[in-house]
Write a protein that binds this DNA or RNA. Structure first.
Lengths: 364, 364
DNA sequence: ATCATTCTTGCACACGTGTTCACCCTTTTG
DNA sequence: CAAAAGGGTGAACACGTGTGCAAGAATGAT
């Protein structure tokens, strides 16, 4: 059995489909009794209006597309949660798609959104960025970028103030008396990475601390990469007494490497992260980190999009300030508490592999 | 300027819109030269076919709806990632919506999906469950439930084998010599919770360990709840030597409570979680837990949906086995290593509040 | 009674695409 | 040379909904 349309209802009610359309849309043009009769028949026959057909005539789908590198990334998930909340509050449904950090796939996904005639698009951590300017002449769909990872500014974007925030974080380490401060970046060449690195450099400069290239290593933005990167720092003849990490995931890996090496945080090494994931409060020790208002940034991006949809002219490049959250992974520099040479003698890499690395994981 | 339709292209190419439609759909019915000419004009004018109009005539939107309690939940996010991957591989786009664990909202979202004429729906952790049976007579849209939280079986569903998996987990603790084994559940009345509790009971029974109600407390499935619940267990005159937690989030909170109380995991207390979140490998110590193949379960649910869409008759209630992952949060029961009475004297609750609870978080 | 006004309704078209049917033109076959 | 066959194309309708316009009915005013 086919699904009921307004024509079917019109037949049952002995009226034209126009009248049904008006009655169901609470139009004042239709007689009260007829309207009630029509609505009764509609609910009886389980009628559900077709948003598809409606979109065709209205030229609006009440739909937005969200592109994300991967929804399994906790950072992305929290932002999307904010976008969805704001979208839903205004009657919009959201399409979600993963780009897997692949520019080609990102463009393909956006094109699929275009075919679906979404009213607007939010792209997180875009690898395409300003290239949308070219596409924009063809696609008339407003796009808002969130933490754009492609150099050069673009139309409308929301982003965290990376440089200020990371300078603030490293300044905190300086104030604690640290001088050998490392940085674990993200090797995939994000703009975020270079900006956070700039903040790190700026904080060193203003404290007259000489920049030492060997204290800068790179991970992959995930715990695995942070762990490996921290291991390299620990193998230095003079390891850093504090490390600023590209993000919390990296920091979590670094924590593990430090513990595996038999050292303690923050007694031996201080760690600062970036993002303030909801779990970062529960690491051991709780992580000092830069808070990104993820949920709010998602909502903000959606609000910009909504303004664009009403034809308004919202602020173009919005920078949201980060906020340093002090927890227990940072402390004043220890004074000789940690004897690095003895750690060296213990051959930490080997030791680590023997203890904490051994995860019995019998997979079928 | 309006966006180009096949009629506009038809005008430019001096053909009818029918021919354009055929040419763009690679129909063999159209002359090769004309087809090429049409395709050239189409790309020149930046034509993008309207999925909306297509859906109207095809009665298929190549779209599925996914309802999730909250996408910010890492478990949900990983499942959605699997759904999206499988959906995208078959040309489907996915609508995402949060139900916030609110049954009314869940129904509302599903209705909005119906209006959007999605081809299928996946609902995670549904609070409505079998009630969809009634709606189904009206909505002819296939629905697959994933870890249904409403009692009673329902049409097509994918779920983790809670009872077996949790029995396996608790059996592991028994084999390590533990006898006082606690359970931290989820107070919100999930079916998952009662099933995991059943597995816990079963493992105790088969080991002839008497069930002690005071060793069962409840959290909220999040770290906060796990922390508070673990605090209550620690305040017992005889705290458990091992605790099985409803999920990893709960376990993470429990770990924090134990550390704050000055005890160690697994030396003093063993902890087992459930879910195997990607972060659980990086807790301190790394968490022994039951692996749920989240990504695969998402893909599986989508595969069931795809079969339903082709008119096939897939298996109805699929149970996916969990798998115990051994890491470092469990160990043989210590022999008097831990003197609980001394802990009691230290007034752990106070001490905890003084140390680990103090998170300097100056919010504006 | 006539006209103006208001209320109510239906007709017809539009949105963009797909598809059936019939038609024309060319080529092949008898 | 006529007929059949085949390739290529356009006209027309369908999908479900919204809306401008006109027309009819009812009511009120003069």
């Amino acid at each position: 059995m086919k699904r009921a349309s307004i024509k079917d209802i019109a037949r049952l009610a002995n009226v034209s489909h126009s009248t049904v359309s008006r009655a169901l849309r609470q139009s004042p043009l239709v007689n009260t009794e007829t309207a009630e009769k029509i609505q009764r028949i509609a609910t009886q026959s389980g009628y559900s209006p077709s948003a598809i057909a409606r979109s065709l005539v209205n030229c609006r789908t009440n739909t937005i597309g969200v592109v994300v590198t991967n929804i399994a990334d906790p950072f992305a998930a929290e932002v999307v949660s904010g976008i969805e909340e704001e979208a839903n509050a205004h009657g919009y449904s959201v399409f979600l798609a993963n780009s897997n950090a692949n520019p080609q796939r990102e463009v393909k996904v956006v094109q699929s959104f275009e075919e679906r005639r979404v009213d607007g698009i939010v792209v997180m951590a875009s690898r395409v960025g300003a290239l949308y300017a070219d596409m924009l002449s063809q696609i008339q769909i407003p796009i808002v970028l969130l933490n754009n990872q492609h150099p050069s500014e673009f139309g409308h974007s929301v982003r965290i103030a990376n440089i200020d925030a990371s300078r603030q974080a490293v300044r905190h380490l300086v104030q604690l008396g640290h001088e050998r401060i490392g940085y674990i970046g993200d090797r995939s060449g994000h703009v975020s990475d270079s900006e956070r690195f700039s903040g790190y450099r700026a904080a060193l400069d203003e404290a007259d601390i000489e920049f030492q290239p060997d204290l800068v290593v790179h991970g992959d933005g995930k715990p695995e990469g942070g762990l490996a990167a921290m291991e390299r720092l620990l193998e230095l003849s003079q390891p850093p007494t504090a490390v600023f990490c590209y993000n919390d995931m990296t920091a979590i890996g670094a924590l593990k490497a430090i513990h595996a090496g038999g050292l303690r945080v923050p007694d031996d090494i201080s760690i600062v992260g970036f993002d303030d994931l909801s779990l970062s409060e529960y690491t051991e020790p709780p992580l000092t980190t830069v808070h990104q208002p993820k949920h709010e940034m998602g909502r903000l991006a959606m609000q910009v999009l909504l303004e664009l949809l009403t034809g308004a002219d919202p602020e173009q490049n919005i920078r949201v300030p980060g906020e340093l959250i002090l927890r227990q992974s940072t402390a004043p520099r220890g004074e000789g508490k940690c004897d690095y040479s003895s750690v060296q003698k213990m051959e930490p890499a080997q030791k680590r592999r023997g203890s904490s690395f051994l995860t019995l994981k019998p997979r079928s």
